[in-house]
């Protein structure tokens, strides 16, 4: 992207913890651990990872919507020149929805069943003072048309249950785009959908990004979706970004053993052969090893891995891997 301009979103050292007390034992789970990334104007960044990797909490942290007992303990989130972590609640509300739109995974639970979809989009516009009354309703129909919903004027009068899952997700995308935010965050926006509908929604997001010039933070567990949509990818494991770089480069030449393992464990490359599964399970975030969190499952583990946490080492321009194979005192 443009190097002479500040990125639209600049996250530095973001750390979010969940503290729980059970039978007098205090458990601290660091769901997001020193995460840093940028999103440039018009850029699509995918946060990829498995459940518990911290990708969703990262997105919620950017919006400061982490549910208690979670809290952001350190870091900075610069968006359009301001640090979102120091904004008061009123200013923050003017950012959420209006400047940063969001789309969640479950299109049914995110919509209110007792209002028409047109009214719900119009409400989003009214809340942010973008339009009122008849103008808001007319704009809602335009937005439904923009997300390729056929007969938008008629569909605007439908209730959520009258729409298919794919159509509901289009409505949510229309609502997220209502105030023309420069950044949209989408958390597994197609996971609940069938393959052909999923591809339609991904095509729609790509088209919206091209037409409106928006930036997208896409959260997904599916590396196929990363390849289809993202310019850059950040792979998360146990709360940290372990590898980041241009999506085609990372997917074609993964340098972190975890990324390599994830790609190798996908079925279908050589049918009928054993998959190179990553052994073990995702670690307990409350009991991480002192060294690299992936070391216990890593095929390339050596002495340095258990001593300390690896830094992010550059492996090629714009591509880093948090792995001692690529730097550090040990080599």
């Amino acid at each position: 992207m443009n190097d002479d301009r500040a990125p639209l979103l600049e996250v530095r050292g973001l750390t979010t913890e969940f503290v729980s007390e059970r039978t007098g034992v205090r458990r601290v789970v660091r769901a997001v651990d020193g995460v840093s990334f940028d999103i440039g104007c018009g850029e699509v960044l995918a946060l990829a990872g498995e459940s518990g990797s911290g990708k969703s909490v990262t997105a919620l942290s950017v919006l400061r919507l982490v549910p208690p007992p979670g809290r952001i303990v350190s870091g900075s989130i610069r968006f359009e020149g301001r640090d979102l972590l120091t904004l008061d609640e009123g200013d923050l509300r003017r950012v959420r929805g209006a400047r940063i739109g969001f789309v969640f995974q479950e299109p049914m639970t995110a919509l209110n069943p007792v209002f028409t979809v047109g009214d719900q989009i119009a409400e989003a516009l009214e809340v942010h003072g973008a339009a009122r009354g008849a103008a808001a309703r007319a704009r809602a129909v335009e937005l439904l048309d923009m997300v390729r919903i056929p007969e938008p004027a008629r569909r605007a009068r439908d209730f959520p249950h009258q729409l298919s899952g794919g159509m509901r997700q289009r409505v949510l995308i229309a609502a997220a785009m209502a105030c023309r935010p420069p950044l949209v965050m989408a958390d597994e926006p197609t996971t609940a959908l069938d393959a052909t509908i999923q591809a339609d929604i991904l095509d729609l997001l790509v088209a919206m990004r091209r037409e409106l010039g928006l930036s997208l933070l896409l959260i997904t567990h599916d590396l196929g979706i990363v390849a289809r949509v993202a310019d850059r990818v950040a792979v998360m494991y146990a709360g940290r970004i372990v590898e980041t770089g241009p999506a085609p480069g990372v997917l074609a030449f993964p340098r972190h053993p975890y990324t390599r393992g994830l790609l190798a464990s996908l079925p279908g490359r050589v049918p009928g052969t054993r998959l190179e599964a990553i052994p073990g399970a995702v670690p307990d975030l409350a009991a991480l090893p002192p060294g690299c969190a992936f070391a216990p499952r890593c095929p390339d583990r050596f002495d340095a891995c258990d001593g300390s946490r690896p830094d992010a080492y550059a492996v090629s321009p714009g591509h880093t891997a948090r792995c001692f194979l690529h730097g550090g005192a040990a080599r």
């Binding site: 393959a195 052909t196 999923q198 591809a199 991904l202 196929g224 289809r228 999506a247 996908l266």
Partner: peptide, 21 residues
Amino acid sequence: RALISAMPDPDPGSQPPRIRY
């Protein structure tokens, strides 16, 4: 054909063009 073309492929550049049904 539509179903196969809709499957996201993590291999960069090997994604077939979409076929709609």
